[in-house]
Simulated scan of single mutants.
Amino acid sequence: MNLHALRLFHTIAATGNVTRAAEQLNISQPAITVQIKKLEKELRLQLLQPMGRGITLTAAGKDIASMAARLFAVEQQIEQFCEQYEQGTTGQITLAATYLPSHFLLPGWLSRFKRQYEDVELTIHTTNSADALHMLTHVQVDLAIYGGVPERVNEWIDMEELFRDELWFVVAPDHPFADRHISLAEMMQQSFVMREQGSSTRERLLSLCRTYNLPAPRITLQFNGLHEAIEAVIAGYGANFVSSVIVRERVKRGELCRVYVDDVQLYNTIAVCTRSQEPLSAAARHFIELVREHPF
């Protein structure tokens, strides 16, 4: 179907007059008439009929005009959607986040973002560090918010550091090491409550032992979530090696205590990861800009 001719007919139906339609479209009246005749021939329907000095729509013309109005209304909606998508005010963002940013940082980021970009749909996958990077490299998510420092980063991933926080050893208040300064060798003799394999913090602890040529810690209790691991330590079992962002308030309230390990000061990196050489949608760029401006 000749959509240009249909648009001319739509304008005639909307204005009720060929002359006014010609003026509105800046096309000569004879040119419009020729196009309408071709459209009628193509559709095998008469769309217009004489009425006095003017024209009117036939019964078929009225039905076609109604459908054309809906068609061009949808066209306008598509154009508006594309403009909004380009501006980042609509669209979708799918992201993977490791447990630390997902539980302690994303709620604030997402709330601030949605207040500004209400029509952008967000889907969040909370997972461990290894799986977050796997999802990113396999194009299952648009970006990943990563807490920790991976030993190896895929060459296809760009990692932008947002900020750093300290990694702390923590125990229950009645633990013999609570608020004490001890050696790393002494600390590694304790039972640890940690996250599952694939957790970046767990890998940092193991790497620390390798660096100082110490036996790997005894991880005698393992959870798939941060909250459960912390609660077990608060309940009085074992020690945990964890980002200060997670436990700082609990330490202030006296629910947990730090253990100060001499000559060991490690930091946790919070980063946003994207695929190298791949452009982001405008909505995803807006989200990253917001996180840069309000990292915590």
Rank of each mutant, 00 (worst) to 15 (best):
S281T: 15
I246A: 11
L184T: 03
E289A: 15
E289T: 15
V74L: 07
E293H: 14
N224T: 14
A239G: 01
A31R: 13
A235M: 06
P176K: 06
Q92P: 00
Y146K: 08
C257D: 04
S276Y: 05
Y117F: 15
A31F: 07
T201E: 08
T269Y: 10
F241Q: 01
G91E: 05
L206K: 06
T126Q: 06
L167I: 14
A31N: 11
V170W: 01
V34N: 12
R112L: 09
G61E: 02
M194S: 15
V153G: 00
R53G: 01
Y146H: 15
E289I: 03
H103Y: 08
R275Q: 11
R44H: 12
V259W: 01
S276I: 00
Q92W: 07
E186I: 06
H125D: 09
L100K: 08
L43R: 07
V170Y: 02
R248D: 12
M135T: 05
R253H: 11
E118I: 10
N268Q: 06
L43P: 02
V149C: 04
V264F: 02
N128E: 04
K252M: 08
D165G: 10
T56G: 08
T19Y: 09
L48E: 03
P215G: 05
E293S: 15
W109V: 09
R210D: 13
L143R: 00
N26V: 12
V245H: 06
L208V: 09
Q29L: 01
E228N: 12
E83Y: 10
Q197A: 13
F113Q: 07
P150F: 09
E161A: 13
Y260G: 03
E231K: 14
T94R: 11
F241S: 01
Q222I: 12
I78R: 10
R218C: 08
M188Y: 11
A65C: 04
G54T: 02
T58V: 07
F296H: 14
L256T: 02
Q222K: 12
P217M: 03
V233I: 07
V74S: 08
S191Y: 10
F169S: 01
Y237N: 07
I36Q: 03
V245D: 07
R70Q: 11
L226Y: 04
M67R: 15
I182L: 00
S200C: 07
E186N: 11
K114M: 03
R250F: 05
R115H: 12
T58I: 06
Q189D: 13
V171K: 04
Q80E: 11
G108S: 09
E155N: 09
V153A: 05
R44E: 11
S207N: 13
V149T: 15
Y237F: 12
A130Y: 07
S199G: 11
N26T: 15
V34F: 05
H286E: 08
K62N: 10
A283M: 03
T269I: 10
